[in-house]
Design a protein around this nucleic acid. Structure first.
Length: 643
RNA sequence: GCUGACGUAGCUCAGUUGGUAGAGCACAUCCUUGGUAAGGAUGAGGUCACCGGUUCAAUCCCGGUCGUCAGCUCCA
């Protein structure tokens, strides 16, 4: 009998008989391991649990806790869902059904339009099938046989996929689970019984192969878990996200509105929202001035010459607000600020001594976004970019990029976002501007800046804009969701089209490098993310109302007014609750408004010239002299403390 | 833009299988002057998104438009 050596991730190894399956090996080690394992990694490749080992190998058992294990688990769940759909609607034809980062989906073609209720029916069917605990069985066919098989079951989608597989490819694999057979590379769970808790989330349309010219199939998204607790946690997470939805909180807290009769995707900032925005902008301006930027203001419209020169009328006319005639000339609302900054650059002959120029503007732009993509503050038609353009000489690009990254980190830190992720996007196929040399220099400037700063980054090969490479920065919010916010992009297109130059040390004309960067992205979207991040409970420095003063009864209104005046004199944003309500009601109102502090004053406080302080979500803090309270709040504001 | 769902008072929602509507909160007035998350009474408030069609009659059925929501596609 042959023996093989199996090495485990912890470095230990053990002898086994050849010909045992990974599952049997797991069982011999621990019953729990065999129970929890969903797949196995043999010599670094993910395989099914019943894969037979004939040679010595490194073996790592994957459970649902591993990302790769989850992937297998969810992929098998998508098959189980397709199986359930096929049982319920036998005419169903299937597109693709992969696992995704959180869960899975499957695209399919059936005559019925599914509703939320149907999702519950499908879930029930899946549970019924799971109880049958059928194995996932792999089989392999030649391309011709596979085509014949799916031709016979008349699935045009699978036939299309198979017909595109390379002739020279090895056998095509199918997976059968019960009476459902699917084209699939695997790997899968040993059997469907491992799928214990399933939640189907949404049903919607999706284009076959992502092509908007082709048929729209129905797609169901779902997620599944081997235990109940993580499913409950996930549902709780979804509910928490729903509670924090900036559209809901924006209404509740009276921050902003959108008016269908006045135009979709256009934001109205209410007094409280405006106050928060003012704080954001004040910080932004001061930070820029303190970090080597100069501030600009530029117009909102420009003549067609500008947009012809910039190329926007060629590339983006469909998403520009249509032109308006003024004095027989076509003017367009600006979709970008860059051309305006360039106009300022070109008002005089620039010398290398002037560079780098760092010009920043909170520039409001308008872009036509398709009606179906608008989403609260996150995707709008009119928004204010926290834009800046850096014009510099080639030898300065490395330092400039580093400086932008350092500054971006500083700004995100101030808003309470500590975790940033960096992505480098390189030259795409569709690149039309710049030559090989420019792309190479700019790309390495971006890459080296991150390397020098010890920053980990991922590379999105070919993900750059057509006019230059870029770094994108994503942030993680309080619910661990990622948002793409900052972008640092080289632009070879504008500088060339506007024929920008500076006179170098050598007395000759050179084309400056142009870097386009936005940190917050758009103020609107940033505000949306901020609302959700803080769940509407803004830290003191941003809170539109920092303190509510609530007298116990009308008898103490005069004292309450005096307290309010003192707090306002210290620069705090204070509201006095003069309403003829009980203190309990006033407290409730300031709590639901998420005001950081509520100051209660009555007979006691008036007598001792003090105030009682209640902190949002925490409760009564007891009595303080007013000056102590002011000093404490000023520390909180100045240090941008997040509670 | 595409597929589907949806649009009733300022907000959150009931309701009418076709006979023009209701609650809670918010708002106004009055009573109450109360110590840490909702005191009481009364009142006002709606062209049932908009435009057409069918019908004796449309908020309800049909068509279109606008908008919202979940995705898809897109995002300089």
């Amino acid at each position: 009998m042959n023996t093989i050596t199996v090495t485990f991730p912890d470095g230990n190894s053990k002898e086994f008989e050849a010909g045992l399956s990974a599952f049997e090996i797991a069982k011999s080690i621990s019953r729990n391991l065999a129970e929890d394992a969903v797949a196995v990694k043999i010599n670094g490749v993910v395989k099914e649990l019943h894969t037979v080992l004939n040679d010595s190998a490194t073996v790592q058992f994957l459970t649902f806790e591993d990302a790769e294990g989850k992937h297998v688990y969810w992929h098998s769940t998508s098959h189980l869902m397709a199986h359930a759909i096929q049982s319920l609607w036998p005419e169903a034809r299937f597109g693709v059904g992969p696992a995704i980062e959180t869960g899975f989906y499957y695209d399919f073609d059936i005559n019925t339009k599914l509703t939320e209720d149907d999702l519950r029916t499908i879930e029930a069917k899946m549970m019924e099938l799971s109880k049958q605990n059928q194995s996932f069985v792999r089989s392999e066919l030649s391309k011709a046989d596979a085509l014949e098989y799916f031709g016979k079951v008349q699935d045009p989608y699978k036939v299309e996929i198979i017909s595109e597989i390379d002739e020279t490819a090895e056998a095509i694999s199918l997976y059968k689970e019960g009476d459902f057979t699917d084209l699939c590379v695997g790997p899968h769970l040993p059997s469907a019984g491992k799928i214990k808790f399933v939640r189907l989330l949404t049903v919607s349309g999706s284009y076959w192969r992502g092509d908007e010219k082709r048929k729209q199939l129905q797609r169901i998204y779902g997620i599944s878990f081997p235990k109940k607790k993580p499913l409950d946690d996930y549902i709780a997470f979804l509910e928490e996200a729903k509670k924090r939805d900036h559209r809901k909180l924006g209404k509740q807290l009276d921050l902003f509105s959108i008016h269908e009769e006045a135009g979709a995707g256009l934001i109205y900032w209410h007094p409280k929202g405006s106050m928060i925005r003012l704080q954001i902008e004040n910080f932004w301006r001061e930070a820029h001035m303190a970090n080597g930027y100069e501030l600009l203001y530029t117009p909102h419209v420009g003549k067609s010459w500008l947009w012809e020169t910039s190329g926007h009328l060629d590339f983006y006319k469909d998403s520009m607000y249509s032109g308006m005639k003024i004095d027989e000339q076509d003017y367009y609302v600006k979709p970008m600020n860059c051309p305006f900054h360039i106009m300022i650059y070109e008002t005089k002959l620039r010398s290398y001594r002037d560079l780098p120029l760092r010009w920043a503007e909170l520039g409001t732009v308008y872009r036509y976004e398709k009606s179906g993509v608008l989403h609260g503050l996150m995707r709008v038609r009119g928004f204010t970019q926290d834009d800046a353009h850096i014009f510099c000489a080639q030898e300065q690009i490395g330092d400039e990029i580093k400086e932008v990254i350092r500054f971006a980190k500083y700004v995100w830190d101030a808003f309470g976002f500590k975790e940033l992720k960096y992505y480098l996007s390189t030259r795409p196929e569709k690149a039309v501007a710049g030559n090989d040399e420019l792309w190479a220099k700019a790309t390495s400037a971006l890459e080296n800046a991150m390397k020098d700063m010890g920053i980990d980054y991922e590379v999105d090969d070919g993900g750059g804009a057509f006019y230059g490479p870029k770094i994108d920065i994503k942030i993680k919010d309080a619910l661990n969701r990622e948002w793409q916010m900052s972008t640092i992009q080289f632009d070879f297109n504008m500088s060339a089209r506007f024929n920008m130059t500076y006179i170098g040390e050598d007395g000759k004309e050179h084309q400056p490098f142009m870097v386009h960067r936005a940190l917050l992205g758009s103020i609107e979207r940033f505000f949306g993310v901020l609302i959700e991040h803080y769940a509407g409970a803004f830290p003191m420095w941003l809170a539109p109302v920092q303190v509510v003063v609530a007298p116990i009864s009308q008898n103490f209104l005069e004292y309450a007014k005096s307290v309010t005046e003192q707090l306002r004199a210290a620069g705090l944003r204070v509201e006095l609750d003069e309403s003829n309500e009980k203190i309990g009601f006033k407290i409730r109102r300031s709590e639901t408004d998420k005001v950081p502090y509520t100051v209660v004053v009555g007979e006691k406080e008036q007598a001792s010239e003090s105030i009682s302080v209640r902190k949002h979500k925490v409760g009564d803090q007891g009595a303080f002299p007013i000056s102590d309270f002011i000093a404490k709040l000023q520390v909180e504001i100045n240090n941008k403390i997040v509670n």
